[in-house]
Design a protein around this nucleic acid. Structure first.
Lengths: 113, 113
DNA sequence: TTGACGCGTAGGGAATCTCCTACTTATTTT
DNA sequence: AAAATAAGTAGGAGATTCCCTACGCGTCAA
């Protein structure tokens, strides 16, 4: 493949449970150095560094150096792009949920008889 | 790896431009047999079949046999799950866009001077 | 029934992913 | 200055991805 698009990089970054958990930690606990993040994983620290690199290259986190630490911070902008991509599909699952709703509405009626 | 979760399968399925384009075609042009889908790609048809398999295993498409054709249809429910996953991040990019908005609001003022 | 069609599966090759254990670099502490 | 700390990089093993060609299976047409 010639070159990955931004979208490719974003979706690929999200396609891994460790990386999604990293994003969640940065969201819920705020910016943190690598060491603090690493405490939540069984994985080796260098492996985690590489996951952070993937997130960085997708624009999902940013890094700022403080002494010998590197504080990682969540950058949610690329997720906005995911949201936008999702938009045109929304009516499809709304349609599904609506017809499920109708179905569920009918059950109590029948039980009431 | 022990076993991929539903989320893993969904995000991984979306992490490929060909598969996202397949979903778009099914969304915009409705349910279609493989042959019709294949016309939009330079790729070999068997390769496309495998992409469809990945989408099927993620629950993003369903298949129904009609004669010797298999009609694929978009199933958007898993995308609803993506939407839900995105929810807790929303306030982060809203915050970013808001402060960008303030910044942009200021420019015309300064130019008006 | 023979051949063409629509589609999936098998098997394989190149590239990429995900993990590891060293090792390097930069900074802080003693 | 030496040791310790924080984190990235190098290199490699094993699994997975993504593409291909060849082939098998079921269905329809001649």
């Amino acid at each position: 493949m010639p070159s990955a698009t931004d979208q490719d990089r974003i979706f690929a970054a999200l396609a891994n449970a460790t990386r999604r958990e990293l994003l969640r930690l940065l969201r819920d606990d705020g910016p943190q150095p690598v060491r603090a993040l690493a405490e939540h994983f069984a994985m080796s620290r260098p492996s985690l560094s590489e996951h952070l690199k993937v997130l960085r290259e997708a624009g999902l986190v940013s890094e700022r150096r403080v002494g010998r630490q590197r504080i990682y911070r969540l950058e949610a902008a690329p997720l906005c792009e995911v949201q936008d991509w999702l938009g045109p599909y929304e009516r499809f699952w709304r349609a599904k949920l609506a017809s499920l709703g109708e179905l569920l509405d009918r059950i109590p009626h029948e039980e009431a008889q």
